[in-house]
């Protein structure tokens, strides 16, 4: 479904060329829970942004159903993200002037009854009684759950989660991951983390070191694929 072929992301930092990711070869299958594991600064988030079309590789390709994302215009890539992908970021980004429910509605495009779906999503995530609260009236864990509900809107084909537990305590972190796993339906889940314990139940885990899919960092775990660089 989503495939990176020799994808690389090059930054220019004060005249110096720095690779956030390089020569990434990776495939995300339908319904798969893929964990991307690596230390801080290893390029995990950059890889996630490339796979989800938020960043365009400076070389190589990222294909979605065989279509190179770089060949799509800005509008088409945006539409793809809104209609087919869901996002959970490290920080629970919500619009402060909208209620939890209104924030969740933002996660899907105009078709269908978004309000009813948003209410259902929030109820299933245990926020049925708080859906009309503003973000500042919610705890950190609750805010991240609202973000999860927003990512699940429209039953996306893939959910990209960038360290979704980083701002939460361990228990809340696990709860959020469990919700993502259980509520995603048939959609794929690509989750970046530096905490291996959050990837229990992942179908596959890849590691990233210095921008390369490298040797397995937690080689003892079955299903971890070393990459090549």
């Amino acid at each position: 479904m989503i495939e990176a072929r020799g994808a690389a992301l090059l930054y220019h930092d004060h005249g110096r060329e720095v690779y956030a990711c390089r020569d990434i070869g990776l495939r995300v299958s339908e319904g798969e829970f893929l964990g991307i594991l690596g230390p801080s600064g290893s390029g995990k988030s950059s890889l996630l942004y490339m796979l989800s079309g938020l960043k365009t590789p400076t070389s190589g390709q990222v294909l979605v159903d065989g279509i190179d994302l770089a060949s799509l215009g800005d509008e088409a890539r945006s539409r793809l993200r809104l209609e087919r992908f869901g996002f959970v970021f490290q920080h629970p980004h919500l619009l402060g002037y909208l209620t939890a429910l209104e924030n969740v509605v933002l996660g899907a495009s105009g078709s269908g009854d978004r309000l009813v779906e948003a209410e259902n999503r929030l109820s299933r995530l245990g926020l049925g009684d708080k859906m009309h609260r503003l973000p500042h009236e919610l705890s950190g864990g609750e805010r991240q759950r609202v973000c999860v509900a927003r990512a699940l809107m429209g039953s996306p084909e893939a959910i990209f989660a960038d360290e979704p537990t980083a701002a939460l305590d361990h228990a809340n972190g696990h709860a959020v991951v469990d919700m993502l796993r259980q509520e995603r339906g048939g959609g794929a889940l690509v989750m970046v983390t530096h905490d291996p314990s959050m990837l229990d139940g992942a179908d596959r885990i890849v590691t990233l070191v210095d921008g390369c899919l490298g040797e397995a960092a937690v080689a003892a775990r079955p299903g971890i694929e070393p990459g090549t660089c």
Partner: peptide, 10 residues
């Protein structure tokens, strides 16, 4: 945030 979620520049 909105642009990241998929809202177009337009």
């Amino acid at each position: 945030l909105l642009q990241a979620l998929g809202y177009t520049r337009r």
